[in-house]
Design a protein around this nucleic acid. Structure first.
Lengths: 194, 194
DNA sequence: TCCGTCCGTGACACTAAGTGCCAACTTCGC
DNA sequence: GCGAAGTTGGCACTTAGTGTCACGGACGGA
C-alpha cells in the first residue's frame, strides 16, 4: 500500500467518523452530503471522489462483516454440513456485534427504518450470498447428475443470511436478548442444526 | 369503488402500459419520468399524482404476486407443516409466471440487473415476509414458553422467499428449465419438503 | 341560468443526489 | 527551479421528487 493509499484511507475514516455522528444525530436521509462534506472540511465534489455515494458509508461496515463470515466459513471442518457450518461461521460477527452493541444496534435499526437504505440492504445481501454460496456448495449432499449446482447453494446461503437478518433485527429491537440464542432459534426453526 | 376510482385505475393502467414499453426498449434507469409522462400524454407533475415514484410501476406487479401467495398459504390444510405449505403456496405464482414467461422473465432479469431497482427488490421481500410470517407461525412446532415466536416465523418465511428468489433467477437466466423443479431443488436443499 | 365548490391538472420553483468539466493548486521526481 | 501527475474546488447539468398556486371543468343548489 503506497503512501497516497494510506492518506486516502485516513481521509475516508475521518469523513466516515463525521458522517456517523451526523447520522446518529439526525438520521440517515435527513443528513445531506453537503453537511457531511462541511463537517469533514471538504467540498461536496471531493466527497464524491472518496465515496461513490452516501450509502457507501453504510455499506462499508457491512461488507467487512461479510468478509469475516466468509473466511470463518472457509475454516470450518470440510466434512461439516452446510447449515451447521454457516451457523458456526456467523458466530464471529455475533460476538463482535454484541461487543460493540452501542454501535451495531443503531446500525441495524437504521437499516430497517430508513427507506433510503433499502437498496443498501439489498446490496449487502447479494454480496454476502455471492461470497458464501461457493463455500456452501461443497458442503451440500451431492446429487447424481448435479446439473444445476448453483441454485441449491445460493438457496441455502440466502436462507442462512435471511435467518441471520431475522435474528439481528429481533436483537436490535429487544435489548437484553442474546443474539446467539435468537440465531439458534431462527436457523433451528428452518432446518435442524444437528 | 366510485366512478373517480375507476377512472383513476384506468389511467394508472394506461400509464403503466406505456412505461413498460419504454422499460423494455431502453431499460429501467435509462427511462426518465419525463419520457413516461410524455408517452402517457400527461405532465411530469401529474405522473407523480398517480405513482409515488418510478419504482411503484415495478412494485405494483410484485405486490400482486405476494397477495396471491398469502391467500394460497391461508388455504392450505391447517395441520400441514410450514415448509411444505410454503412450497405449495408458491405454486400459484409459479404457474402464472411460466404461463406469462415472455413478461415475467424480463421482469426478473431487470430486477437483478438494474441497480436502481435494488430498493424495490428489498421492499418486495419485506412485504412478502410481512404477509407470510403470521400465516407461517401457526404451522411451526410449538416451543414450551414461546417467548419470542415472531423471530422463528420470520426466519422460516424469509428463508422460503429466499429460495423462491434463487429459483426465479435461475429460471430467468436459463430458458427451458422448470421453475417448479428449481424451487423443489432450492427448498429441498435447505430443509426436507416431507 | 348563474354561482360557488371540489377536483384534476399543469406550470413553476425548489431541494438533493450524482456526474462531467475545467482551472488552480500541491507534491514529487529530475 | 521545473515539469508532470495527482488533488481539489467551483460550476453547470441531469434526474427524482415535493410544495405551491392558479386555471378549468363538472356538479349541485338558489
Amino acid at each position: 500500500m503506497s503512501l497516497r493509499d494510506h492518506a486516502r484511507e485516513a481521509i475516508r475514516d475521518e469523513v466516515a467518523k463525521h458522517a456517523w455522528t451526523l447520522f446518529a444525530a439526525h438520521g440517515y436521509e435527513a443528513t445531506t452530503v453537503d453537511q457531511i462534506a462541511d463537517a469533514a472540511g471538504m467540498s461536496r465534489r471531493t466527497f464524491f471522489r472518496y465515496f461513490a455515494g452516501k450509502d457507501e458509508l453504510v455499506l462499508e461496515r457491512l461488507v467487512e462483516s461479510g468478509n469475516l463470515i466468509a473466511t470463518a466459513l472457509g475454516q470450518r471442518p470440510a466434512d461439516e454440513a452446510a447449515w451447521p457450518a454457516l451457523r458456526a461461521a456467523f458466530s464471529v460477527t455475533l460476538a463482535l456485534q454484541e461487543q460493540h452493541h452501542e454501535k451495531s444496534r443503531p446500525l441495524q435499526l437504521m437499516l430497517r427504518a430508513e427507506p433510503a437504505l433499502r437498496a443498501t440492504a439489498e446490496t449487502r445481501r447479494r454480496l454476502w450470498v455471492e461470497r458464501l454460496a461457493p463455500l456452501t456448495a461443497a458442503r451440500l449432499p451431492s446429487t447424481g447428475a448435479g446439473d444445476r449446482p448453483d441454485t441449491r447453494a445460493v438457496a441455502v446461503a440466502a436462507s442462512a443470511v435471511a435467518c441471520l437478518e431475522a435474528a439481528q433485527i429481533a436483537w436490535a429491537e429487544n435489548p437484553g436478548t442474546s443474539l446467539g440464542e435468537l440465531l439458534d432459534d431462527a436457523m433451528g426453526a428452518v432446518a435442524p442444526l444437528a
